[in-house]
Design a protein around this nucleic acid. Structure first.
Lengths: 232, 232
DNA sequence: ACTATTTTCTTTTTCGAAAATCTTTCTACT
DNA sequence: AGTAGAAAGATTTTCGAAAAAGAAAATAGT
C-alpha cells in the first residue's frame, strides 16, 4: 500500500533535453490509465514532483483537470487519489461509450473526406506495426500501443461534426481505457483477434458501410469489456 | 473590448468575513454562466486575482477545470478565454441533454425513494418562491434563481443510479444554462409558463409517470432552447 | 486501562516573485 | 515609404517557500 516512487512510464526522448514542460497532464493520465498508479492510491505531491520533475502548482493543475475527467477524486484537505473502479462502473461506461461511438461513426462516415480516410489508414498502420509484434515485444511497448490504439479509434470518428459528441465519446474512451488495461496480463492467445478486428473496422469505415462499422465497433468494445470484467 | 474590472456576481455574504477560500471555481463558473464574462473574453490573471481575491495558482487551477468542463478555452502561451457560443452548439447540447435527462428521469422514477420525493418537493418550493415573485423582484434575484433551478432539475433525476449518466447530464445542463441565460432579458410574459411547467414536471415525477415526465421535460427544454436561439 | 488534550510531524494549500513567452513599439536599413 | 530586426512592455507560466490543515504520537488526567 505504500506508494513507492516508480519510474515514469512515458519518457518520450531520454535525450539530453527532456522537453520537460507541461504535458504532465498527459503523462499523468497515461500513467493512471496504465494502472501504474492503482485505484485508490493516494497521489502525494512530494513523490509526484520528483517523478515528473515539475513544481507543485503545475501538478495541482493537472490533478484538478484529471478530477474533472473522473480519473482522480479530490477530498477537501486530504489531497488527491486515483478514482476507484468497479464492475458496475465499467458496465455503465461501456454502454455510454458504445452509444456515443456508434452515433459518431455514422456521422463520420457520412461526412468524412479524403483526408479523413488517409488519416485512418496512416494511423491504423502505426497501430498494426505494434500489434503485429510477437507478444513479448508488444508488451514492452504497451504504453505506445495504448496511445496508438486511442489514435486509431479517434481517427475513425474524427470526421464527426458534433464536437460534443466527439468530446463525450473521448471522455468515455479514456475511462474505458483504464479498465481495458487490466487485460494487459491476459494470456497471449486472447488478444490476438483484436488485430483483425481493427482492420475490419477500418475496412468498413473506408467502404462507408455505417451499419457494419457500428456493429463491429460494438462487438469489439463489448468483447473487451466483458473480458476485463472477469479479471476485475 | 477592454476587460474592465467588474464587480463579483456572487458575494454570498457581504459580511465582515468574505469566507474567501477556494469556491473560486464555483464563482467563476457562475459568472461565466451568467454571462458576466461574455464569450471570447480574455480572462487575464491580473484582473482576476483582484476580482476574486485569490492567488494566481488558485485561479489557474479553477480555470483548468473549467476548460475541462468546456466553459473556457486555453491556448498555448496566450492564456484563457471564455468559450465561444454558436447556434449549432446550442442545438447539439440541447439534444444531448434531452437524451440524458429523459433516460435519467426514467431511472430516477423507478429507483426513487421517499427521501427523493421529499427533496423534490422541498427544492421545488424554494424555486417557486422566486418564480412567484413579480418580474422586477425576480430579476434582482436571478443568480439565486439559476442556482435553485439547477437544484430542482437535479433533484428530479437525483435517484438515477447511473453515476456517469448523472454526471454527463450535469455537464450538459451547465452548458445549457449558459445559453439559457441570454433569455434573461426576454419580455415579462414569455417566461411565465415555466412556473407551471416546473410544477407539472414535479407532479409527474411524484406520480411515477415516467412517460409524462420525460415528455414534459423534453418540451420544457426544447422550448427554452428555441427561445434562446432566436436571441442569439 | 482508557479517554482527552497537547505536541510534533506530515501533507496539502496558497501565494507572489522570477523566468519564459508573446505583443507591441521603435529603429535602422533598402 | 516599407519592411526586418531589435528593444521594451505586457502576460502567462512555473516554481518553491511559507501558511494552513490534517494525522500521528506523546503526555496528562480520570
Amino acid at each position: 500500500m505504500t506508494s513507492g516512487i516508480v519510474k515514469p512510464a512515458s519518457t518520450p526522448t531520454p535525450r539530453s533535453e527532456t522537453s520537460g514542460s507541461r504535458d504532465v497532464l498527459t503523462r499523468l493520465r497515461t500513467d493512471i490509465i496504465s494502472s501504474i498508479f492503482e485505484p485508490e492510491t493516494r497521489l502525494k505531491f512530494a513523490d509526484m514532483t520528483k517523478r515528473y520533475d515539475v513544481g507543485i502548482g503545475t501538478l495541482r493543475e493537472a490533478l484538478s483537470q484529471l478530477s474533472s475527467e473522473g480519473f482522480v477524486t479530490v477530498e477537501a484537505g486530504k489531497g488527491f487519489k486515483v478514482s476507484p473502479v468497479s464492475a458496475e462502473e465499467l458496465l455503465e461506461i461501456t454502454d455510454h461509450f458504445i452509444t456515443f461511438e456508434k452515433r459518431a461513426v455514422r456521422e463520420a462516415i457520412t461526412h468524412g473526406d479524403e483526408d479523413w480516410e488517409a488519416n485512418i489508414v496512416a494511423v491504423h498502420h502505426r497501430l498494426s506495426l505494434i500489434e503485429a509484434l510477437p507478444w513479448e515485444r508488444r508488451m514492452e511497448r504497451h504504453s505506445e500501443w495504448v496511445e496508438r490504439h486511442r489514435d486509431f479509434h479517434e481517427a475513425i470518428v474524427a470526421a464527426c461534426p458534433g464536437r460534443w459528441l466527439f468530446r463525450l465519446r473521448s471522455i468515455m474512451f479514456d475511462q474505458l481505457d483504464r479498465y481495458r488495461f487490466v487485460t494487459k496480463r491476459a494470456p497471449k492467445g486472447l488478444g490476438g483477434r483484436k488485430f483483425e478486428e481493427h482492420r475490419e473496422i477500418m475496412a468498413a469505415a473506408l467502404a462507408r458501410d455505417a451499419d457494419l462499422a457500428a456493429d463491429l465497433i460494438e462487438q469489439h468494445i463489448r468483447d473487451t469489456s466483458e473480458r476485463a470484467i472477469k479479471l476485475l
